[in-house]
Nucleic acid binder design. Structure first.
Length: 674
RNA sequence: GCCGCCUUAGCUCAGAGGUGAGAGCAACGGUUUCGUAAACCGUAGGUCCGGGGUUCGAAUCCCCGAGGCGGCUCCA
């Protein structure tokens, strides 16, 4: 605030450059790279060349300012494009914005795509350009001038963008450094010497304007920071994140695996299955306390179900279909007939559908609708909360799958709440409380909330959608929770509240969700008998806390770096004998622990103690119990805690068992504070 | 699905058209019986992802396919 420059009355209504204004007000220094221009609602970043009314309120942004980064990164995108066009003449440019920790620029290059070597050359030339300390300059062009310049340069993508800007009536500005210029709204650093710390990190394909049917461009990514030290720190962070990657840890810790014959469908190995089941047990125990009823439903359904639910018209691209041999024979017959009759078979698709009668469920909701409908339901039964850990299969396009976080076969901690309209608010709010309690048990601090509204492809009336969306907004406001809106990203049957958490590499994943659905009940013609003895339409809430167990586990592995809290760990304790001489006593302890419900294992090999400890540490087992002469004599074990590598000394076996049992339940379910 | 890269022993990785394809770890056998992050010796282990081609000769070059990785697009 103290830095804010006050305008004098003389200056009013003149356009002056930001640089001049700052200089005049004594706010300009060596490291000033841009300024914040105060506007009615907040502020906007402007660079030093931008002409602004001389009465403007300006705040200098120097190199160390967090907002300086986007200016630096954006400017580097320009420098990179300059380098690319010098090294690869004829390459067209598209968009080149700053990103979360760097920048990219999209290119349309003839000939072979960019390779490793090319990146090195480009980066080297960028450094040369930076060393020349070229000033960035801003110019305002008329639409005609801009068109001329871009068409002369053959920049077809930029021209397309220009027309869009002109149509919106925006001011057309170009920025240049040296001989290179680009249609761009800025802001940019005063000169290239501010662009000190950057690295080009990779090439990837990206559609022009992000639209799948558009041509694919080549995107070169870079990272950039204000100085080399911060850049190095960031690189170190990336390296650390790599160590936490759940795919790597999943293999090392023998949690899960994949096989090419079941692409994107994980195999949970014994250790992974233990954690997986611990997660499900945990949610089950919550269900018992929160009034959910678990059901088990079929895997494969007649397509009629999915026609009724609306999955077939809107979701079939994501479904696996299943045919019996009989069904396939039917298709063959029909195809042969069609060929013999030289029929172009417009109904070919329909014939296929006759044969491929079944589909694997991609969601549990239709099955739950069937259960709801199996009896005449009374309002006294509501809210009816049906939970299901059923296995779901979704056909995901080959390029999108990823470790455990995006798979084709998974299970959700899924439940559907059938309730009356006036129960909706309360159910949503209760669910949000439940969800945050769960996230706390796992040590997840912040989660980001997104409300996803009606998508283009959807079922149901707009009136239903209005009510459903309103219900979600109201509940969140009631809870005082901040949220973002993702326009058009809802499920086809209803809007969603999504709860997102980040993985180690900073990718954000949707885990929990609650969705309001007025449509399913209509499609399945669900009803319950109200207190007035007339039928009423229930509302269905779709909800999951962990989301998919697979994805949650993936994020959890990264969050904990594989060191699961004891209540989730595949093994609670490993017993390590100092030599094989003490194996008998160790086995005695092992049996006792196992009998008490402790997940204990023992390393009875002839390795030296140091080697056994190393292995146990690498497997991140929460407790290690060393057994040697002293322990065998005194009927104790020497306990060491994984976290902090803290030695707890020789303890009686019973004490160790009690200690472990006190941690065996999730934090929120422990009776004694611990 | 699209663009690019990758696939060699159970794992991590060497091997860049020319001996019978290698190392470390793991496994197995033996020796050692050890006190808080790797004892020693030995043995075995390979359709070099699959298929086709070029070549006197292919792990290595080309084509097709599968799977994975980084993105784009799409999603729990």
């Amino acid at each position: 605030m103290s830095l804010e420059a006050q305008p004098s009355s003389k200056e009013r209504d003149q356009l002056r450059s930001v640089r001049d204004l700052l200089a005049e007000r004594g706010l300009l220094n060596e490291s000033t790279i841009a300024a914040r221009l105060k506007e009615e609602n907040g502020h906007r970043l402007v660079d030093l060349h931008t002409p602004v009314p001389s009465t403007s309120l300006l705040e200098p942004v120097d190199l160390s300012d967090p907002e300086a980064l986007q200016v630096i990164r954006h400017s580097l995108a320009h420098v990179m494009a300059d380098a690319v066009q010098r090294l690869f003449p004829g390459t067209k440019i598209a968009f080149g914005p700053p990103t979360r920790d760097g920048f990219y620029y999209d290119y349309d290059k003839a000939g072979p795509p960019f390779g490793e070597e090319d990146l090195k050359r480009i980066e080297a030339l960028m450094r040369e350009i930076v060393a020349q300390d070229l000033p960035f300059q801003r110019e305002v062009l008329s639409p005609e001038e801009a068109r001329n310049r871009l068409s002369k340069a053959g920049e077809t993508y930029k021209l397309e963008h220009l027309e869009r800007l002109i149509a919106r009536g925006e001011e057309i500005t170009f920025y240049h450094h040296g001989n290179w210029s680009d249609l761009c709204e800025g802001p940019h650093v005063p000169s290239t010497r501010f662009l000190k710390a950057f690295r080009l990190t990779g090439v990837a394909g990206a559609y022009w304007r992000g639209i799948e049917t558009n041509p694919m461009l080549q995107r070169i990514y870079g990272i950039a920071f204000a100085d080399e030290a911060t850049l190095e720190k960031h690189l170190a962070r990336l390296e650390e994140a790599k160590q936490r990657d759940h795919r790597k840890l999943g293999k090392e810790l023998e949690l899960f695996a994949f096989h090419p014959w079941a692409p994107a469908a994980p195999f949970f190995l014994p250790r992974g299955a233990l954690v997986y089941n611990a997660l499900i047990d945990y949610v089950r125990s919550l269900y018992r306390r929160f009034g959910y009823l678990e059901v088990i439903t079929p895997q494969v359904f007649d397509r009629e179900l999915f026609l009724t639910s609306g999955h077939l018209p809107t979701y079939s691209a994501n479904m696996f279909f299943a045919a019996s041999e009989e069904g396939l024979a039917l298709i063959r017959e029909d195809l042969e007939k069609a060929i013999l009759q030289e029929d172009k078979a417009p109904e070919l698709a329909a014939l296929m559908k006759e044969g491929v009668r079944f589909a694997l469920k991609p969601m549990n909701c239709p099955a739950h609708a069937l259960i709801f409908k199996m009896e005449r339901r009374s309002h006294r039964e509501l809210p009816l909360r049906l939970a299901d850990f059923g296995r779901l299969h979704r056909f995901e396009r080959s390029g999108v799958t990823q470790g455990l976080t995006r798979v084709r076969s998974f299970c959700q901690d899924d439940a559907h709440i059938f309730c009356s309209i006036d129960q909706v608010q309360g159910e949503i709010e209760a669910f949000i409380d439940l969800l945050f309690g769960v996230y706390k048990d796992f040590g997840f601090e912040g989660s980001q909330i997104v409300v996803a509204t009606r998508p283009e492809v959807r079922i149901g009336s707009d009136e239903n959608w209005n009510r459903a969306e309103e219900a979600l907004f109201t509940a969140l406001r009631q809870k005082g929770l901040p949220f973002e809106i993702a326009e058009g990203e809802g499920a086809f049957y209803g809007p969603k509240v999504e709860f997102h958490l980040e993985d180690a590499i900073g990718r954000s994943w949707q885990l929990g969700t609650i969705q309001v659905d007025f449509n399913m009940a209509e499609r399945f013609d669900l009803s319950f008998v109200g207190p007035d003895n007339t039928p009423h339409r229930p509302v269905v809430l779709h909800r999951a806390i962990l989301g998919s167990i697979e994805r949650f586990l993936g994020v959890l592995i990264e969050h904990t770096a594989g060191a699961f809290p004891l209540w989730l760990a595949p093994e609670h304790i490993i017993l390590l004998t100092v030599s094989e001489r003490y194996n008998a006593y160790a086995q005695e302890v092992l049996r006792e622990m196992q009998a008490k419900g402790v997940r204990a294992i023992a390393d009875l090999s002839s390795e030296k103690l140091g080697a056994k400890i190393r292995k146990a540490r690498l497997m991140r087992i929460p407790y290690r119990g060393v057994i040697g002469e002293r322990e065998a004599q005194s009927q104790t074990i020497s306990l060491t805690q994984r976290d902090g590598n803290q030695e707890l000394g020789a303890l009686p076996v019973q004490a160790v068992i009690e200690r472990i049992l006190s941690e065996i339940t999730p934090p929120s379910m422990r009776s004694s504070p611990n």
